[in-house]
Design a protein around this nucleic acid. Structure first.
Length: 596
DNA sequence: AGCACGCCGACT
DNA sequence: GTCGGCGTGCTC
């Protein structure tokens, strides 16, 4: 008997002899010799054949298969869809080896199926009701913090197991096994719980489906949403997605296509939203008079203020008309290179010389000017000298310094922070959320820039609630994302956004992939890869663009719904065993953050 | 000559 | 992904 075993490596499975006294099954992890070492691998297939020249499997790594046949197939689908190996997919999505009892009664009888998107006020309460009715559910959350929060909320409905890495390895492995054995009806976890065994009647839930955290770096490089939807489809289970601001892809599926339903949003409490026009006036003062007044009034009322500062883009905007200088073909913000005095498109690679007048209004005040945290903090301290002011920048300071920041922020009247600072404030605890220059987000060279800005503003409005105010300073005061937030009207964002995506061929209408070549003869390799891709009539291939000062090259590809399969066949000669001296190739399908 | 480092390629 | 092999090049 031969077993094909997949290891945590970008390799196809290897074949081993199964000793006569060893009983193993596909979906079970085993220990096998690899380059002299004892390594854990996943048995993907058992077959007959001449095994006399193969090395023998050393023994089981789990007492029983961790994956049923159906879930092993799902893992293989994930690997195909993300162009990664089954081995690294399994390694990323399974608990540490050592446990696994035989799961009972999973992958059960066909049930009612369908995807439902829950939006609007009370969406999480409605989800909990549905979970309570089903009494069996796996709830997938974007991060460990959310896992802890949801474990508490779900505990009111029944015993909950945590399948995320917020608990230690042994506990996680045990929880996985116990959930499969039916010890509890409810489980919560991050994407590492996506392949957990499920009772037949369990529903699948995905919290905050629009979050980029559902697709963190590293294998299997697939958004949890896609795995949840595929699993629900295969196992004929209901899937529930929650989101304040669904991804444009999900909105489209729910409104323009069958199979996904979405009830109209229940409008909840909403703050007074003020949009102030900053064109031409924000050169040395980060707060416009309306925002400064709102800060003063909020402090006088004894309530707290959050000033949100957005990441600086490296693009130019016109200080007179507010327009961002964009690629005429791709509509991405062009990236400004000071050294070359050029503007470049991160998608099609076009480079144009820096112009001296705005292409829209011919104004002469094009600049990369923006507000960063430090500059805003400095100006606000000067202006509100008596207020207790704290800066919140979780990305810049983790660990002990982060804790000190958290304490300072908790006691502050004015918190100046990045978007993550919203989490510091409980519901209705915020009197004012002021956005200094949210359209700096529009200057990011990413077709999702508008979606990001919209999600951020909407989340802030929900957090502030009816008892507070939202002031948005903008150079694009009539942008549809801002108007949609001001009117609390989701469709006001998605309608024009979908039109834009359709016109320029962005998701959900086309799929994108980014192929990065690094090391070795990068330039020649990139040209070869691009040529191979161009041979496929189903792909739109953009010219290779230099990255990291010529140390890497990037090729962007657009394709249809079958992009992973088409890419895999076009890149056949470059994947698998190949001299590494030629450079290494990395493929990212459906990127959520544009590589910068 | 002796060794440190980095790159390459194989791994069943 | 990970490790050992071995080449280049630096130092004693």
């Amino acid at each position: 008997m031969i077993a094909d075993v997949a290891f945590d490596a970008p390799l196809a499975p290897f074949s081993y002899r199964v000793p006569a006294d060893l009983t193993i099954a596909p979906g079970q992890r085993v220990l096998a010799p690899l380059r002299g070492a004892k390594r854990v691998g996943m048995v993907v297939r058992l077959r007959d054949g001449d095994d006399s020249r193969l090395k023998a499997i050393l023994g089981p790594a789990d007492r029983a298969p961790v994956l049923s046949a159906a879930r092993l197939e799902l893992a293989e689908w994930i690997a195909r869809e993300s162009l990664s190996s089954v081995g690294s997919t399994c390694a990323a999505l399974l608990p540490p080896p050592g446990g696994a009892e035989r799961a009972r009664g999973e992958d059960g009888p066909p049930g009612r199926t369908g995807v439902e998107v829950l939006i609007g006020a009370g969406r999480e309460r409605r989800l909990l009701e549905r979970v309570g009715e089903a009494r069996h559910a796996l709830v997938i959350v974007p991060d460990v913090e959310a896992a802890a929060r949801w474990a508490q909320r779900l505990a009111r409905l029944g015993p909950v197991l945590r399948l995320d890495s917020g608990t230690d390895d042994d506990a996680r492995t045990e929880a996985w096994t116990r959930f499969g054995a039916g010890a509890a009806g409810l489980a919560v976890g991050t994407r590492s719980a996506l392949l957990a065994p499920l009772p037949p009647q369990a529903l699948l839930a995905l919290i905050d489906e629009h979050e980029a955290a559902h697709k963190p770096p590293g294998a299997p490089r697939l958004h949890s949403r896609e795995v949840v939807l595929e699993r629900a489809r295969r196992e004929r289970r209901p899937a529930l997605l929650t989101s304040a601001t669904p991804s444009v892809e999900t909105w489209w599926r729910a409104t323009d296509r069958g199979g996904t339903t979405m009830a109209p949003p229940a409008p909840g409490p909403w703050p007074a939203v003020t949009i102030t026009d900053t064109r031409g006036i924000l050169r040395r003062e980060p707060l416009t008079p309306p925002l400064a007044r709102a800060v003063r009034e909020t402090l006088a009322a004894g309530r707290r203020v959050l000033l949100v500062v957005s990441r600086l883009g490296s693009s130019l905007a016109c200080d007179e008309c507010g327009e961002v200088v964009r690629c005429p073909e791709c509509a991405l913000a062009l990236v400004y290179s000071r050294t070359g005095a050029t503007l470049g498109c991160r998608l099609c690679g076009t480079t144009i010389p820096l112009m001296d007048a705005c292409p829209h209004c011919h104004g002469r005040r094009l600049s990369p000017f923006g507000w960063g945290l430090e500059r805003v903090e400095h100006a606000v301290r000067r202006r509100f000298a008596k207020a207790r002011i704290a800066r919140w920048d979780p990305e810049a300071s983790r660990g002990a310094r982060g804790e000190a920041q958290r304490v300072a922020a908790a006691g502050a009247e004015i918190v100046i922070g990045t978007r993550g600072a919203l989490r510091l404030f409980g519901p209705a605890s915020l009197g004012l959320a002021g956005f200094v220059a949210p359209d700096q987000l529009l200057r990011l060279p990413d077709f999702r820039a508008g979606e990001r800005m919209f999600a951020l503003l909407w989340a802030a409005a929900e957090r502030v609630g009816a008892q507070g105010a939202l002031v948005i300073q903008s150079q694009n005061p009539t942008h549809y994302a801002l108007e949609a937030v001001a009117r609390q009207e989701l469709a006001g964002f998605y309608r024009p956004e979908l039109k834009f995506r359709a016109e320029l061929g962005y998701p959900p209408f086309r799929r994108l992939a980014v192929i990065t070549l690094s090391g070795g003869e990068t330039r020649a390799l990139a040209d070869e890869v691009a040529a191979a891709l161009r041979a496929s009539p189903r792909l739109t291939v953009y010219p290779p663009v230099a990255e990291r000062r010529e140390r890497a090259r990037r090729i962007v590809v657009k394709g249809d719904a079958e992009l992973p399969v088409v890419l895999a066949s076009a890149l056949e000669d470059f994947r698998g065993p190949r001299p590494k001296s030629r450079g290494i190739m990395d493929v990212e399908v459906d990127p959520v953050e544009w590589p910068s």
